[in-house]
Amino acid sequence: KSGRELGTFCFQDTGVGKSSIVCRFVQDHFDHNISPTIGASFLTKTVPCGHELHKFLIWDTAGQERFHSLAPMYYRGSAAAVIVYDITKLDSFQTLKKWVKELKEHGPEDIVVAIAGNKNDLGDIREVPMKEAKEFAESIAAIFIETSARNAVNVEELFQKISKQIPPLENPEVDSNDSFKLTRQPAPSARRCC
């Protein structure tokens, strides 16, 4: 199987459970006290998909979205975006629409968008009807799923759904790209320049 890295980012207002979804997916545990800024810049998780291994690189937006100031660099080369809202807060669903707009304007054209209604375990105080959210998702051709990071409901499924929608590798323009990262051990300088 060939491995393939998929840049993914996950965003929404603070407190809707974005970080807990990521945590549940990556570590399979739910942390009740996740601090808003976890000091990490991304987490990774590998999901097998057909003949490929999809390695999700999940960017943490580090709270930059809090005052609507997310840097466009987060979108670079991203294959998927997960927008999380809280089914018990109507406001969070309204801001989700703003993020979708932002994404359409600044994100890559072929980005796979997934909408996750989190806190599905708190159905009794639901404010966002599932039907409404689903219809909205369909209108923008996004994946829709309700999740519960607390009870591990649909978190794995969310990422599997994304995995299935990622088009197979056939973009030579991007993938034959010989760009590279700078690393701590640069090539030893023993090479005489001239």
Binding site: T37, S41, A62, G63, Q64, S69, M73
Partner: peptide, 15 residues
């Protein structure tokens, strides 16, 4: 800026 945000810096554009 991203590194700053990761370590708790607060960002606000149009401000």
């Amino acid at each position: 800026c991203r590194m700053c945000a990761v370590f708790g810096g607060i960002y606000c554009l149009r401000h």
